[in-house]
Simulated scan of single mutants.
Amino acid sequence: MLAAVLERFGNAAAEALAIKEVPEPVVGTGEVLVDVLATCIPPYAAEVFSGERRYPLEPPVISGVGAIGRVVRSSPDATRLRPGDLVWCDPTVRSRDDAVTPDITLQGWSSAGAGGVTLSRYFHDGPFAERMLVPTENVFPLGEVDEAELPRWAALVVLLVPYGGLLAADLRAGETVLVSGATGNFGSAGVAVALAMGAATVVCPGRNEAVLADLVARFGERVRPVVLTGDGDADRAAMQAAARGPVDVVLDLLPPSANAAVARAAAMTVRPYGRVVLMGGVGMLGGEDLALPYPWLMRNSVTVRGQWMYPRTANVGLINMIRSGVLDLARERVTVFPLVRANEAVRFAAAHGNPFDRTVLCPRTDLGERAAT
């Protein structure tokens, strides 16, 4: 089969991926082989492949993260999946020998800790290939979907991240959410998901006024934009004023390049007894710690929780939200590429990382020969 292989970390501007024939995976117990139909390329993929992000990938590796696929064959322990089923392949793979604190790897992408790296050496390869092998528990049926819409469904990999954070926050309909990093790729997805889950108001801080205006144009008056100035006290006051009431939940999705002071100002807008969920990359590249004040946390009974990715059940919940129309994929602006143009697609994704812009690789269909908008 054909695959795009990261043979070594190198210059992101070069041809980082080798397009070549590789052996087809062999299905074992507890595994499913799928034809890869569409996979979303993160805007920061070039930073991963260059080594700038220092992800614990071990080349050579077929990279990528999450995919829409069609079942080719499954092992005998799968009782419902059938060849031909259209499915979502969740990249969040958990070890099966510890139900309480399982090791986690993002198949073909990243890992947490030594155990995650060990797990990644088995479920090593991702979706930048015509076929991939996926753990049975990571395969979720989509039902009937128009083939022309499959590239939009690949946005699941982006939407699931903030959805997992909002589930961790126990968001309830009618509450006010502040999305820190709202003008970014994951943050803007968080705005869409929070509104779909019933948030009454979503406060959207950011520096990019054009993106903030676009969020308001897309979602209406439930979105409350705040242009950040860099003055922590002033920004915190502006965010609280924009909420026009208590902030129940703060979801942080700021990237590694963001200053911890920005995350701190956003977190400290939350009301007493409120919830703060940290999902971004602040501090991953060094720099100042978040350093929330102990007395403020204690006296206000604030809950602060870290959340990496999402529970398995989130896959089913988000698929149902999309199928019901509660969460509308029509907002996604999608550009698709065939597998043989994978390097071009990575460069395109880096240059087109605005909210709701998705660059999608389609290894096994003619969808890769045209663009969906």
Rank of each mutant, 00 (worst) to 15 (best):
N11D: 01
A12V: 08
A16I: 02
T39C: 11
T39N: 07
C40P: 13
P43E: 06
A45K: 14
E47I: 15
R54H: 10
Y55D: 12
P59E: 09
P59A: 08
I68S: 00
R70W: 03
R73V: 14
S74N: 10
G84D: 05
D85K: 02
A99R: 06
G108Y: 04
A112W: 12
R121K: 03
F123Y: 10
D125Q: 01
G126S: 04
T136V: 06
E137M: 08
L142Q: 00
G143S: 02
R152P: 01
A155Y: 02
V158A: 01
R172K: 04
G174T: 06
S180C: 04
N185C: 09
G190N: 07
G190A: 03
A192Q: 12
V193E: 12
A194L: 07
T201L: 12
L212A: 09
V216W: 05
A217R: 04
G220R: 10
G220T: 05
V226N: 03
T229G: 04
D233V: 09
R236L: 10
A241G: 15
L251S: 09
D252P: 15
L254T: 13
P256G: 11
A266P: 15
A267H: 11
T269K: 09
V277I: 10
G281W: 08
D289F: 11
R299V: 14
N300E: 05
V302E: 01
T303L: 08
G306L: 10
Q307E: 11
R312Y: 15
L318F: 13
N320W: 13
A330M: 14
E332P: 13
F337T: 15
P338S: 14
A342N: 10
N343S: 13
A345E: 13
V346K: 12
N354L: 13
D357H: 13
R358G: 10
L361N: 05
T365D: 00
T365M: 00
E369D: 09
